[in-house]
Design a protein around this nucleic acid. Structure first.
Length: 974
DNA sequence: ATGATAGGACAATTAC
DNA sequence: GTAATTGTCCTAT
């Protein structure tokens, strides 16, 4: 807290921007100009508004420029430069004859400024790298280039490490050159602090600073040397870019925020600026444990990890070792090893948060969104989870919750962070002006620190890596969420429609917001009663909501402060993702607005259909701006590292841009491209995805050569977006939407969607039938081949029936009908592999039996293999339709996973479906007697089975008042 | 060297 | 050829 009262001296910040050209021969960048904007009075304890730092006398700037090799500066430039210098009273534009001289001059000026912080956009990935490489190549003496830092060096360190990883900052060699100064890369910072579709300076200037920026690529530069006017433009662009990154830094309050983060965790500011989040937590824990006189785990370099731990094991063995430590090691090493390889290749190494199966659909009455405030940090405190309190077993099993009363180090630490934040927030309320901003930064930093603690426990390269602890925390999180859901559903009789990790959504079914809020109050009260530290809170009230999938929904959020403000919140839907084009996002947004508008179904559908027809027409007549077709994809590797670039259009574009010297094209960049085709002389278009991706700039340059592939856009970008959104709206279908878009609707049947999903409430049409809604969500009928072990799905009934009435089938219709019911795996169309009517009836009966059985026992069936349901039959009861989501009674042996949820409605629906199939096949007049007779008999048996099942259910229902019974009362024998 | 896992969508690859 | 698996990307929490 002392930092608040101490006067912190201002620092000097210099923003650097280089302009380069490409040397085709060596494929390297050569510097032609360097601009520096320097701010001499930068406060680091408070955010700075633009009027604070743009004062006269605190800002200085200069640019140093050189002429191209073998040519001279254009006429008038030298005079202009000296005029400017004279007017400014200092060197603001220096002209040099060679790159070497430019570098020398730049270094001298930088050392005169002696800045504390170097700023630039992608400065660690580009400017510094180029600067030092050029210094090396041009043989700039070490006395000069080492002025970039504050340490005098005589030997250039190894600059490259070979790997240009995603989001990697400057290499260690480069960092060592600028020793004594801080490096602030606004590109890296903004990626941490903002969520943007692209992190290019142009984009950020537009969205954050509301300023236009002119993009200059290296091959635009040589032509600019033809006249003094264009060259002065180049100077202007360079200085503007430096200015913009400086402004961005102030805008995001990078320095005060990172300084606070550094202060809280006690690591190095330079590291915080590079975004080393794991290291911050590491230092914080080091300080805490050291203060309490604990011995701290050794630090291993990732490369030597295996070696070191092997040595350590050896030592532990020879010395007899600490039993707990020695035993814990192998499992940890094992996991680390796994984790290292696993993280990139395979999936996660332990289980995380619970996501509830959403009850999909469109809700039009108030919905409550409740969530636990910082769940994981609270769990650590609530259950006292710490290295010092949890007993970790050697076999990798989950540890038990600690029983010790004494608070561990971790919970204490979090408690103090929370308390400090609460205190700062209380000061925030009364403070004003600079103090207020200062407090705000501080409370943000405290929150960030507390929240990142859990992540580092599960981070395999962390010094404090503790998978068991992380696992224990997430397990508690899952339990807490599930318990909360149970409480709300069973005790408070409310409907939970969705929940993710730390939140639940409750559908109130009320029109009255004050009543809904009252319910929220009650829930909050009930839930919070159960916990000491944990706290659930009302996060929002939704007026209307479209719930599509896990992590995919949209809702109209009502302001909680009583005002009538409403805004639409979109989560995970296509339009919030950056891998869709602007056009598809806009159309999706329009549809969403319609769906949430509250209009009648028919109106909504009509307006969506109309707009699709309209969009199609607009696209075809060229009324859509080029920009809206742009797709952006990011590169996680450097483009040349993609093994199979031909299949990845954006990689192709990136590679080509790199050849052209586009500097912003390395790992981690977003590459904009447009799907288009090249028109050949014969009026055809060359195919292949790889050939069709082109950079928008190129299209602008030569627009006649390229055609935007509208067909592709309609089918690949717009149709999926719209049909996903409309899936829950009655009266529409993917095929109909395709029609409106002018696409071949037969290619967009819905039958292939969602067949493996056993969620019976699914709104999507399943494979069973594309016409009859009564059988939506049923389990498809699976047939087994009479001659081999293969099983396959029964073809859609409607198509079978259609085939019978198809005149083309003629008198062979019946034969063909049964021919369709044949095993797709057996090579020949023989009688053996065909499902005859008798076989079909038999199989339907078997499957119906199976289903009825599962319906009863299904309540006891847990997805978990290890859970033996048969022994627990007495504890279970038949669920009513409102009771989905009951926990398996064997909990916790089966980890609390949900039992299969069959409700009565499901049973009726499924059995009706079986009847339907049977009926559909039986009633065909075209079947000849010979095939029909045995079938008739089977059908009778099946019919009886099903009707007796219905009767049984009826009997049970009649007998009990509440619609459910103990299974012990039942002698179910089907 | 540079917090975590869960989940959906799509394209490419592999298995049958 | 089609179903299942794998890999990649981007989001939610």
């Amino acid at each position: 807290m002392t930092s608040n009262t101490l006067e912190v001296p201002p620092v000097v910040v210099a923003a650097v921007n280089l302009k380069t050209i490409i040397n085709e021969k060596h494929n390297v960048h050569e510097i032609v100009s360097a601009s520096v904007i320097c701010c001499h009075q930068v406060k680091i304890d408070t955010p700075m508004r633009s009027e604070d730092w743009q004062k006269r006398g605190t800002i200085s700037h200069f640019t140093v420029m050189r002429k191209l090799e073998g040519s001279i500066f254009p006429i008038g430039l030298t005079k202009e430069a000296s005029d400017r210098n004279q007017k400014a009273g200092s060197n603001v534009l220096a002209l040099e004859s060679s790159e070497r001289a430019l570098l020398n001059r730049l270094m001298i000026e930088l050392s005169k400024l002696d800045c504390d912080v170097l700023v630039g956009h992608n400065i660690s990935g580009f400017d510094l790298d180029v600067l030092l490489h050029r210094a090396q190549t041009c043989k700039v003496p070490s006395s000069m280039w080492s002025k970039i830092g504050r340490l005098r060096r005589s030997v250039m360190p190894r600059l490259t490490k070979g790997n240009t990883l995603y989001g990697s900052g400057a290499s260690p060699g480069i960092m060592s050159c600028i020793a004594g100064r801080l490096l602030c890369d606004t590109y890296l910072c903004s990626r941490d602090l903002l969520r943007e579709v692209s992190y290019s300076l142009t984009q950020l200037a537009e969205t954050q600073l509301k300023k236009d920026r002119r993009e200059v690529s290296p091959h635009d530069i040589p032509p600019m040397f033809q006249s003094a006017g264009t060259l002065l433009k180049l100077v202007e662009y360079g200085e503007t870019d430096a200015w913009l990154s400086l402004e961005l830094m102030f805008h995001l309050s990078v320095l005060p925020l990172t300084r606070q983060l550094t202060n809280i965790s006690g690591n190095l500011w330079g590291k915080t600026l590079q975004g080393a989040r794991a290291q911050r937590v590491e230092y914080l824990l080091l300080h805490s444990f050291h203060a309490k006189k604990f011995i701290i785990p050794d630090k291993f370099a990732a490369r030597n990890k295996e070696l070191n731990s092997a040595k350590r094991k050896l030592n532990a063995d020879t010395e007899g070792g600490n039993a707990a430590d020695g035993a814990a090691d192998p499992s940890i090493d094992d996991e680390v090893h796994h984790g290292d390889q696993g993280k990139a290749r395979k999936g996660p190494s332990y289980a995380g948060g619970l996501v509830l199966e959403p009850k999909k659909g469109l809700y039009d009455k108030y919905i409550l969104l409740l969530d636990f405030n910082s769940l994981y940090p609270s769990i650590i405190q609530e259950f006292n989870i710490c290295f010092t309190t949890v007993e970790r077993s050697s076999d990798g099993n989950l540890p038990n919750l600690p029983t010790s009363k004494a608070s561990g180090v971790l919970p204490e630490l979090l408690k103090s962070l929370v308390e400090r934040r609460r205190m700062v927030k209380s000061w925030l309320k009364t403070a004003s002006g600079l103090k207020r901003q200062q407090f705000d930064i501080q409370q943000q930093a405290l929150k960030l620190t507390a929240n990142s603690m859990y992540g580092c426990l599960g981070f395999s390269n962390s010094r404090f890596f503790a998978k068991p602890l992380a696992e224990l925390i997430t397990l508690q999180g899952r339990e807490i969420l599930q318990n909360t859901v149970d409480l709300v559903q069973n005790n408070l009789n409310l409907e939970v429609i969705y929940g993710d990790t730390d939140s639940i959504m409750i559908y109130t079914g009320l029109d009255d917001i004050s009543k809904a809020k009252a319910i929220a109050g009650k829930v909050i009260q009930e839930v919070n009663k159960k916990y000491r530290c944990l706290e659930i809170d009302l996060d929002g009230v939704y007026k209307r909501m479209l719930l599509l999938k896990k992590k995919k929904y949209a809702a109209i959020k009502v302001a909680l402060d009583g005002s009538l403000r409403e805004n639409i919140e979109r989560k995970g839907l296509d339009m919030v993702r950056r891998d869709w084009s602007m056009l598809s996002k806009e159309i999706g947004d329009f549809c969403l607005n319609q769906i949430l508008s509250g209009g009648t179904c028919d109106d909504v559908i009509e307006s969506i259909h109309n707009s699709l027809v309209q969009v199609q027409a607009q696209m075809k007549s060229g009324q859509i701006e080029l920009e809206k077709y742009i797709i952006t994809k990011s590169l996680t590797k450097a483009p040349e590292d993609y093994p199979d670039a031909k299949n990845q259009p954006h990689v192709q574009v990136a590679l080509r841009l790199k050849q052209n010297g586009f500097s912003g094209c390395s790992a981690g960049d977003t590459v904009p491209y447009i799907i288009c085709s090249q028109q050949d002389s014969d009026n055809t278009h060359s195919g292949g995805i790889a050939q069709r991706a082109r950079h928008p700039d190129e299209l602008k340059r030569d627009p006649n050569k390229w055609m935007i592939d509208i067909e592709y856009y309609l089918s690949q970008q717009i149709h999926p977006v719209v049909s996903r959104l409309c899936a829950s709206i009655e009266g529409t279908s993917p095929a109909r939407l395709a029609e409106c878009l002018g696409l071949d609707s037969s290619k967009f049947q819905s039958r292939s969607i969602g067949s493996s999903n056993e969620d019976t409430s699914t709104m999507l049409l399943s494979v069973i039938d594309d016409e009859d809604e009564r059988y939506r969500g049923c389990e498809p009928l699976r047939l087994s081949c009479p001659s081999c072990t293969n099983t396959f799905e029964c073809p859609a009934v409607s198509s079978l029936i259609a085939s019978l009435s198809d005149p083309n089938e003629g008198k062979d219709a019946t034969v063909n009908f049964w021919r369709r019911m044949r095993c797709p795996r057996c090579p020949d169309d023989t009688d053996e592999c065909r499902v005859s009517p008798a076989v079909l009836a038999n199989q339907i009966k078997r499957q119906a039996d199976n289903f009825i059985n599962r319906y009863y026992k299904g309540l006891l069936m847990c997805d978990d293999e290890g859970c033996k349901y048969s022994t627990h039959i007495v504890n279970l009861r038949v669920m009513g339709d409102s009771e989905r989501g009951t926990i398996c009674p064997n909990y916790p042996q089966c980890n609390g996973r949900l039992v299969r949820q069959y409700t009565e409605a499901d049973l009726y629906r499924q059995l009706s479906y079986f009847c339907y199939v049977l009926d559909a096949t039986r009633c065909l007049d075209k079947l000849d007697q010979k095939m029909r007779l045995p079938f008739e008999k089977e059908f009778a048996v099946l019919n009886q089975t099903i009707s007796s099942a219905f009767l049984e259910i009826q009997r049970i229902r009649d007998r009990c008042a509440f619609g459910w019974v103990q299974l012990t009362d039942l002698a179910v024998s089907i």
